[in-house]
């Protein structure tokens, strides 16, 4: 049974990161029906920003906790700026273009950002310091779950609760829901749609950067290409949960994380992706819009 919990927590950790990134995909899709392929790169940029901030903090001699908080906050701000800029440059001019155009523009942005980091930083893996301290109270549980895993799970849970409350109870949250339902109608009712879309990119990018810093610290290394696989997996999670649905992205991320973890643990890690994608195919056969997605006949 211990083994089960080991795998459960390792799946939960991985699933939390998938969920954090998947939220960005799903929110953007919900509002402008665009699959933002550059989102994985925002995650990677967040991780690199976190690394640079951590380097500066260690020169200044700050404590581990304040370094972690600063790295996360600055990475979130910086990545949000990137997210908004990408939207302004690559998607906004194509807002009324055929749906394929922004998609191609997104792929272009993804390639551009990867190569930008490759040239500006390095092509090699760079070490990422462990920013998460070894908590004393964690000692008895460390066989199941390490401090890094606990921090990832807790931070993700908090971020998602805050996001849900934000969307439910704030004015801008309400505007987001309105825009998602019907952009034209929201516009007519006086909602500043451009502002709402920018806000969506800010939130999505900030969450991806949060995931990037946490996983960088957990794995201890990053390079310019980490966004690709993380992006593909998170996109899968978003589709699995129902793209456009926020609880769906979280659920999809966790299910994907657990599937991979249990497939590795009980079958073989060779087949981890086989199980993950078989599950995706099965769910899409029975629920074409994903687990929590609403079938919107109008959009088909």
């Amino acid at each position: 049974m211990d083994y089960f919990w080991d795998l459960f927590f390792s799946g939960l950790t991985r699933g939390s990161i998938y969920a954090l990134i998947a939220l960005g995909y799903t929110m953007v899709y919900g509002i402008i029906e665009l699959i933002n392929f550059a989102h994985g790169e925002i995650y990677m940029l967040g991780a690199f920003t976190g690394l640079i901030v951590a380097g500066i903090c260690s020169v200044l001699g700050l404590s581990l906790i304040s370094t972690l908080v600063l790295a996360i906050v600055i990475a979130m701000i910086y990545a949000s700026a990137y997210g908004v800029t990408v939207e302004r440059i690559a998607y906004r001019p194509l807002r009324n273009a055929p749906r394929l155009s922004p998609l191609i523009s997104a792929i272009g942005m993804s390639i551009f950002l990867q190569n930008y980091v490759l040239l500006a930083q390095t092509s090699k893996f760079v070490p990422f310091p462990n920013l998460i301290p070894d908590f004393a109270f964690m000692q008895p549980f460390e066989d199941f779950i390490g401090p890094s895993e606990l921090v990832i799970i807790v931070v993700t849970a908090v971020a998602m609760t805050v996001l849900t409350l934000f969307i439910k109870y704030t004015k801008i949250g309400k505007a987001m829901r309105a825009t998602a339902q019907n952009r034209k109608m929201a516009l007519l009712c006086g909602v500043n749609v451009d502002h709402v879309i920018s806000m969506t990119f800010i939130i999505g990018s900030a969450l991806a950067a949060l995931g990037g810093v946490l996983i960088g610290s957990y794995m201890g290394q990053i390079n310019f290409f980490i966004g690709f696989i993380a992006g593909i997996k998170a996109f899968t999670a978003a589709v699995l949960g129902g793209i456009g649905s926020i609880p769906g992205a979280v659920l999809g991320g966790l299910i994907l994380g657990w599937t991979e973890s249990f497939a590795t643990g009980y079958v073989s890690s060779d087949y981890q992706d086989v199980f993950a994608f078989c599950l995706l195919v099965l769910i899409l056969i029975f629920r074409p819009a994903g687990i929590l997605g609403r079938t919107n006949t109008k959009k088909v």
């Binding site: 080991d6 795998l7 390792s10 991985r14 990161i17 895993e149 997996k233 590795t264 073989s268 890690s269």
Partner: peptide
């Protein structure tokens, strides 16, 4: 005897399996 996917975001599941 296990293969892992290069570039995955973490390897904790396979490490748990080794440990077991």
């Amino acid at each position: 005897f296990e293969g892992v996917t290069p570039g995955a975001i973490d390897y904790s599941a396979v490490v748990q399996k080794i440990k077991r």
